[in-house]
Design a protein around this nucleic acid. Sequence first.
DNA 1: TAATCGGCGATCATTAAGGTCGGATATATA
DNA 2: TATATATCCGACCTTAATGATCGCCGATTA
Lengths: 141, 141
Amino acid sequence: MLKLTKKIDYALMAINFMSFKGESVANTRNIAEIYNIPLELLAKVLQRLAKKGFIVSQNGPKGGYTLAKDPNVITLGELIRAIEGPIQIVHCTEGDTSCLQTARCTIRSPLRKIEHKIVDFLDNVTIDQICSEEVPEELAV
Amino acid sequence: MLKLTKKIDYALMAINFMSFKGESVANTRNIAEIYNIPLELLAKVLQRLAKKGFIVSQNGPKGGYTLAKDPNVITLGELIRAIEGPIQIVHCTEGDTSCLQTARCTIRSPLRKIEHKIVDFLDNVTIDQICSEEVPEELAV
DNA sequence: TAATCGGCGATCATTAAGGTCGGATATATA
DNA sequence: TATATATCCGACCTTAATGATCGCCGATTA
Ligand code: FES
Ligand code: FES
């Protein structure tokens, strides 16, 4: 119900961590251990972020990820779309036939406007507004 | 993922319908048939709305519901809270111990601010901005 | 060439949402 | 007063989305 997913949380934590690592690579295991995130799940999230061009992967031993973009040019909206797909506050799309209410639905189009405004808002929140927390020195190996 | 529930949809449709009925009562079955909503589910939603004081119930035959408030003083935020409980974009509350990331979570409090802004927005959208659609005359029995 | 990393598809588990059922109480009307 | 029709309410089942796991591959570097 109007909730962000864990994947988004993980992505934000990971980006936060990477932004403190700067040029040096951060590997998945390291991040997973620090934040207590299931390794495989975090791996998937990072793969997705890499695919979408937010981070760059470095394969092989001593490999890992580095940020491809500055956190202040990535928006929360972009990040959500990258991981979860298009943001849809209201489930029924225009051409959708599966919804039984489609025929007499009085609310679809007004809700679209609200959706648009929320998306608009999310597209104006940059990641660095969220990722400004310190990473404890002793953990940022 | 950041989606409104069907219950909210149903509530909006019902309120829309009732606002066109004016003083005369609208019964659950009637609304359910028109909009193709599962009767029992709609009933529950309306009971919830009645309990929260948005609509007034009239028991017995010829009974039903009438609006207790003008749609232009009810906000979407209120409606969502009435039906689904408090709006939480981010799952983990402050005292929550169940989340494994709590210890080193860097994103909880920044996300709270975003949540607050969205809630603020929803609290400034009135229902009549959504419920402005016509109800076909032949159906509004 | 062995150990360490990311890449990827398939799969299972858990939870939340959507929907159903059965029985109760209230009330208008015949 | 009997009956039909309405709201009320809690328990329950089903389905879909999310969260998490597994196994195997290819890349890279020491
Ligand atoms: S079309 Fe599905 S609820 Fe409006
Ligand atoms: S406390 Fe649960 S993700 Fe931050």
